[in-house]
């Protein structure tokens, strides 16, 4: 029970503090897409892939006191920041087979939510030729320019290149 919750808690722990629900949503999606076994179901919503299941898991982790959700405001925008509590650390200590993804988690966490959103949208359409995926992202997402696209694809390539071989959770 609660194995999937533990993976989310471990991600938050290894990333440090994660600023924003959107960022966390996109981080889990990106990790899932490049092959890390996170099992949350994602659907395409109006602004990219989103998991209602993850929203619920986060809420439960907060209810159980394993992670702390703190609302903060930057430039008039509200964010929910997440970090692991001491009780959360105890919870993780009792859970077997947790992922060790510190380096990739930190790499994702260093990016903005908006950038991770673009990366997620491009990954969502990864079955399409690149040109079509870019067109889709432009139709659905915000006003992304060519530089954004290029940077996102370089980022995706680096994620795949640095993915640990034979990884398992």
């Amino acid at each position: 029970m609660l194995e999937d919750h533990a993976k989310i808690a471990a991600l938050i722990h290894q990333a440090g503090e994660i600023a924003g629900r959107k960022k966390l949503q996109k981080m889990v999606y990106i990790l899932q897409k490049i092959g890390f076994p996170f099992h949350e179901t994602y659907r395409f919503h109006f602004y990219g892939p989103y998991s209602e299941e993850l929203t619920m898991q986060l809420e439960e982790l907060c209810d159980f006191g394993f992670i702390l959700e703190k609302q903060t405001e930057t430039s008039g925008e509200h964010y929910y920041c997440y970090r692991l509590t001491e009780e959360g650390e105890t919870f993780l200590a009792h859970t077997k087979q947790l992922p060790y993804i510190k380096s990739i988690a930190e790499k994702l966490n260093a990016e903005t939510a908006a950038f991770l959103e673009l990366v997620s949208i491009l990954l969502y359409f990864d079955r399409l030729p690149r040109k079509s995926a870019i067109e889709k992202a432009q139709v659905i997402g915000k006003d992304y320019n060519q530089t954004d696209m290029q940077r996102a694809y370089t980022f995706i390539a680096a994620l795949y290149a640095n993915k640990p071989v034979g990884l398992s959770l």
């Binding site: 029970m1 609660l2 924003g20 629900r21 959107k22 949503q25 919503h45 109006f46 602004y47 990219g48 989103y50 929203t55 619920m56 809420e59 439960e60 925008e77 509200h78 964010y79 929910y80 939510a113």
Partner: peptide, 21 residues
């Protein structure tokens, strides 16, 4: 033995910078 959770938000709206999508 199974823990089962139900959760629903009856209505919400998009806030810039955040999302319930």
């Amino acid at each position: 033995l199974e823990v089962d959770s139900s959760s629903d938000c009856p209505y919400d709206f998009y806030r810039p910078g955040e999302e319930e999508e």
